[in-house]
């Protein structure tokens, strides 16, 4: 393309770059700066530098909660990615089978969770499904003659409830992408494989999956990041201001939020942000490497 001399392109670029510097970069740098101080509600203006103390506290104190949040977040990300891909793959296979008549109707209906505002549906799940008194699930449980379950008050139940919502929210996007990737496969390959006597699952695990994998790699990477950065579900389900449910299922991001805006320990919260940033940079570079090697 053209390698125009002169500075015309800067006219287009400068507003954008200035804007990014002001709204994204400066807050990040400022957060980094705060992470070396003891800034908190008590030290709002008269804070002082305390070196790496906040970092030590996060990484070396067992009961700081940071390490368990880190572990929980990794577990959350891994479980969700595996289940998302599994369910989405099965749904996409179903949608691509020639026997299915009303494909487009199903596609439209199944995509609804993606189309609704996420915070609304999370609240609907909380009130409509999981609520102890009038939630749908507990009404079912009561009908069956059992004791109602307080889904959000214990860690394991709350974690699983959040995971169900996350899958419900995430599967539509994933199956749409897998479905689109499957459309690009040449059908002739299947006929050959079936002729040679391969079964349905064999064909799709050994032919379809490897063929769509390179197309899906960037989408999987993006989804991994989205899950790693989980905030809304955990926040809205268990830790809303004034209506905490008692379960402690902090992810990294809710942990930072909690330290900054609930316990108001800004310096410490900023240090945790610094550590998360480092993790994100490492993950990001690793993922880039994977993506590049897949493309080549």
């Amino acid at each position: 393309m053209d390698r125009r001399k002169g500075y015309t392109h800067w006219i287009y670029l400068v507003p954008f770059l200035i804007f990014i510097i002001m709204t994204v970069l400066i807050p990040l740098i400022y957060t980094f700066y705060v992470s070396f101080t003891n800034m908190s509600v008590y030290h709002w203006t008269n804070y002082k530098f305390i070196g790496l103390k906040n970092y030590y506290k996060a990484l070396l104190t067992v009961d700081s909660g940071f390490l368990s949040a880190l572990f929980r977040t990794l577990l959350w990300t891994a479980l969700n990615i595996i289940l998302l891909v599994f369910f989405a793959f099965v749904i996409a296979l179903g949608l691509n089978s020639p026997e299915l008549r009303f494909k487009n109707i199903y596609k439209t209906l199944l995509i609804f969770p993606w189309a609704m505002p996420a915070y609304v549906t999370i609240l609907l799940w909380r009130m409509g499904m999981f609520n102890t008194e009038f939630g749908f699930l507990n009404q079912l449980i009561r009908k069956a003659g059992w004791q109602p379950i307080n889904f959000l008050s214990t860690d394991v139940y709350a974690f699983l409830s959040c995971m169900i919502i996350n899958l419900w929210l995430g599967i539509p996007y994933m199956f749409t992408m897998i479905d689109a990737a499957m459309q690009s496969i040449d059908r002739g390959i299947y006929e050959n494989a079936y002729m040679e006597g391969a079964g349905f699952w064999r064909v799709h695990v050994f032919i379809t999956a490897p063929m769509i994998a390179p197309i899906l790699t960037p989408i999987l990477i993006m989804t991994a990041f989205t899950n790693f950065k989980q905030f809304d579900i955990v926040y809205l389900m268990t830790m809303q201001t004034g209506s905490k449910t008692g379960a402690n299922i902090h992810t990294l991001i809710t942990y930072v939020y909690d330290k900054a805006f609930v316990t108001s320990n800004y310096g410490y919260s900023a240090a945790v942000t610094g550590i998360i940033s480092l993790i994100i940079i490492i993950l990001y570079m690793g993922m880039q490497k994977i993506a590049r090697s897949k493309v080549n």
Binding site: V24, L28, T31, K229, I253, V256, A270, T273, I280
Partner: peptide
Amino acid sequence: AFPTILSLFAI
């Protein structure tokens, strides 16, 4: 790749 919410306090 950084969630904006991480710099919420700085903002």
